[in-house]
Design a protein around this nucleic acid. Structure first.
Lengths: 342, 342
DNA sequence: GCAATTCTGATTTACGTACCTCAGAGACTG
DNA sequence: CAGTCTCTGAGGTACGTAAATCAGAATTGC
């Protein structure tokens, strides 16, 4: 049987009230006594029963999730997952609120963060767009005891924060490894379509991609990125122009949003032209279709549901002062071909 | 605030004891009264607070995990993950026991199942090797109220069971999709190395693999599988013989155990010979190395840690009579290239 | 040496559920 | 009509912890 506070009290030769004070860092205990209690805790291997503690406290975890608004399919999927997890979390005394902010807009994000009612808020998860104002807002929240987790895209160090998302450099390298092999020894150029070079995740993917292509596929040239800014039409137009302007394109890496436009541009190519190998990101409905009909060869994905559940677990662990299980909280870079789409 | 049993009692106009009898399916309540209580539960949206219930019951979940013994790296990794989860689960009133049985041996597995003390056992997770005796033993366990989950390899229907593992047919199809592209249009034959055609997961992978190669890569021939029987030396020897006997091999799919032998056989080939594209299963230490030095092009993996945690969650949900969240419990087919190895 | 202050102990209530006992109401049997 | 049986209510204790109150002990300041 696990030891309880009663056992600790007995072992330390103090009362239950004293053990409670030590455990909950309340004042009124001599340092010598604190040490006696802590020794007893260590000796017995006592661990607080979080379920019982939360019951006694009638604790409610209150978390806010901040996501960019707009047409970005991945973000909308993320939002759905947050809603779903929020519904289920009700049963576990967890209250989750979603706050939407304009994308690519540090000032708006900072304003949203500063507008949060910190009194009964225990944690914030946000898709970070870095800016000094945002960092200041996060530091302020943290000083008020709010735990912070970055989602999908990371941001410069915030004390004691945690990042839930994939390693985007590795994702870019992986895309390069796949595309390099899919191109199959042909020489030529590779086009890049990104959402915006102003968000860190896209920049990192490009960096990783270029590094591997340069090192391992000397026959391949990578063109400068086409910026679609989360708009399918823009992305499609830019790609169409590039495809029309040159005939040496053998591969395409679609780094971020705007897949719908990319798919249309590719489908409009004449069927007699040689196949362009394509690796894209995020397994949305459009991407699934493109995989099924051969327009995309592979899709790299991060599972939004996993990310949301992981963020919630991490926030809870931090609030409860428990360790985070890294192996469980690592978000994998998922690769999908036509054959392993779930 | 969530409604409690008290609210339900008041709403139904009965006493707390009666609500309790209904909730816990104890005798002594008229069916008409049961209905009144259930209506109130539905109307209020009452859900039992599992944490409080477990506290009150001083419940301890007792689970047995049955895994094959022997040198199979994946199984040893699985066992480590079970131990790890077991240690952590202690804090959540969960006691996990590991039972090892000889591999590929239905009779031994059935004997182990029949030897389980069912009195205080709430669930069993097993790497299934199907046989009538095993199925009978599982049915018996299930009649005694023990929940059953199959791990990694599934088995013919057991009432109310659950399978935690990847879709092995899809894994084989995925391997074919990768290998077909990696071979890069060359014609030739593909070798298959399996553990045993007596376990269902390996058979399914081969089926999926052959189907895609036959349909999409007409230039490629697939050789009959070489059975290594979880023994690296055997697998290595068989592959070496095949490689020596023919020079038209352009690809290899290593379906199961024995990767160490496969890797050695491949490394011993003269460096002047053309590259053989290789897709293998399970990201063990040897496989990581083979990815790093280019011996393997891709590794398909199932995350043993996820599987164990999923099995525990599913067993708990079943014991508590709660629904299983399918999206969370689906085990992904992971693809690793050199660049996304964690 | 007395008061004020700080520390500690004992005890109680609460969280939401499980489970037990005891008593009584009502229906049925013979 | 007494006796039995089934159903229901009332109330209590327990699970492990949090948090509060009150009282007594030890320490400090003056």
């Amino acid at each position: 049987m696990r030891p309880t506070v009663h056992d600790v009290a007995e072992a330390a030769g103090v009362s239950l009230a004293t053990v409670d004070r030590v455990l909950n860092r309340r004042a009124g205990v001599r340092s010598e006594t604190i040490e006696r209690v802590e020794t007893a805790i260590a000796r017995l291997g006592y661990v607080r029963d979080v379920a019982a503690a939360n019951l006694a406290k009638s604790r409610v975890y209150r978390f806010a999730f901040i996501v960019p608004e707009g047409p970005n399919s991945f973000m909308r999927g993320l939002e759905r997952e947050i809603e779903l997890s929020g519904l289920r979390s009700r049963l576990e005394r967890t209250d989750i609120r979603i706050i939407k902010v304009p994308p690519f807009d540090g000032a708006a994000l900072a304003a949203a963060l500063n507008g949060l009612e910190t009194a009964d808020l225990s944690g914030v998860a946000l898709v970070a767009a870095g800016s000094p104002a945002v960092i200041a807002a996060l530091e302020r929240l943290h000083r008020r005891g709010v735990e912070i987790v970055t989602l999908v895209s990371d941001i410069e160090v915030v004390s004691r924060s945690h990042y839930v998302g994939i390693d985007n450099v590795a994702a870019g390298r992986t895309a390069a490894g796949l595309l390099g092999r899919f191109v199959g020894g042909r020489a030529g150029t590779i086009a890049l379509v990104v959402g915006s070079m102003a968000v860190r995740d896209h920049v990192e993917r490009c960096d990783g991609f270029r590094a591997v292509i340069a090192a391992e596929y000397p026959g391949l040239d990578v063109l400068p990125p086409l910026e679609g800014r989360d708009d399918a039409r823009t992305a499609g137009r830019l790609l169409r122009d590039t495809l029309a302007a040159r005939d040496d394109i053998v591969g395409l890496y679609s780094v971020g949003a705007g897949n719908r436009g990319v798919i249309e541009a590719l489908r409009d190519r004449s069927a007699s032209l040689p196949h362009i190998a394509v690796v894209a990101h995020e397994l949305t409905d459009h991407a699934r279709q493109a995989l099924a009909d051969g327009t995309f060869d592979a899709v790299i994905n991060q599972d939004a549901g996993h990310e949301v559940r992981s963020a919630i677990r991490v926030l809870k662990a931090k609030v409860d002062g428990l360790p985070v299980i890294d192996a469980q909280e690592t978000i994998r870079i998922e690769i999908y071909l036509r054959d392993n789409v779930p």
